[in-house]
């Protein structure tokens, strides 16, 4: 099941790549980073949403599975935020000539990365078990509440980031859509695997 999801996701990714480079290439060519940058950004937000939902579910239902899922989505969110920031930085270097500059989207995606990292640090720093799951869930909730403010406050910055690409052909939108779907499938498979690891770890100790 999990393997199937992964395979479908890779097939979709390759399909989107083929469409992007045959029919939907964006000029100048470096802007094609968008096909990996935008899906990563959407996925990290989706994973943050997952962290929020699972944390609330854990606090209400107290079922261990939600704790595992919350931990997994935070880690996957961290991975996607890393990709988001790296691709963003490479794009910035190519377009504007510098790796990083304080501007709206750049700051907000950096903060997203900090938040995910902070959750992982908190989670790894408990030496005795205690009510670790509760505390991590609480932090997950307030970290997600922080996200909208990240975007609102970043509006204060002068923005050199393109708000969104205007696509001239539907091929381009199709390629991007396919890439987004594929990446979300990849993300859910990763969360699933990570949650299983957490569960096995807990049972073994």
């Amino acid at each position: 099941m999990r393997v199937t999801v992964l395979i479908i996701s890779f097939v979709l990714m390759i399909a989107s790549g083929v469409i992007a480079f045959t029919k939907g290439a964006i000029e100048p060519v470096v802007r094609n980073i968008v096909y990996i940058h935008v899906p990563a950004s959407i996925c990290s937000l989706v994973c943050f949403g997952g962290l929020f939902v699972f944390s609330i579910m854990y606090l209400i239902k107290k079922k261990p599975v939600f704790d595992y899922l919350g931990a997994a989505s935070a880690e996957v969110a961290f991975v996607f935020a890393t990709v988001l920031n790296i691709t963003g930085m490479i794009f910035a270097k190519a377009e504007w000539g510098l790796w990083w500059t304080p501007s709206m989207r750049l700051i907000s995606s950096a903060i997203l990365w900090f938040l995910a990292a902070a959750y992982l640090i908190l989670r790894s720093s408990f030496n005795e078990q205690g009510n670790k799951a509760n505390l991590c869930a609480v932090f997950g909730i307030i970290a997600f509440v922080d996200v909208p403010f990240v975007y609102i406050s970043a509006r204060l910055m002068r923005d050199i980031h393109r708000p969104s690409f205007s696509f001239d052909s539907s091929w381009q939108s199709a390629a991007l859509g396919l890439a987004i779907v594929a990446t979300i499938m990849l993300a859910s498979a990763l969360i699933w695997m990570r949650a299983d690891i957490e569960k096995l770890n807990k049972r073994l100790n």
Partner: peptide, 25 residues
């Protein structure tokens, strides 16, 4: 939250800083 952690102040500083970013701007 950090009261049950041994190295609490270092963890606390990271958590507060990450959450307070949107306020900083």
């Amino acid at each position: 939250i950090v009261m049950s952690i041994k190295s609490r102040s270092s963890v606390l500083s990271i958590l507060i800083m990450a959450l307070i970013m949107p306020m900083m701007i």
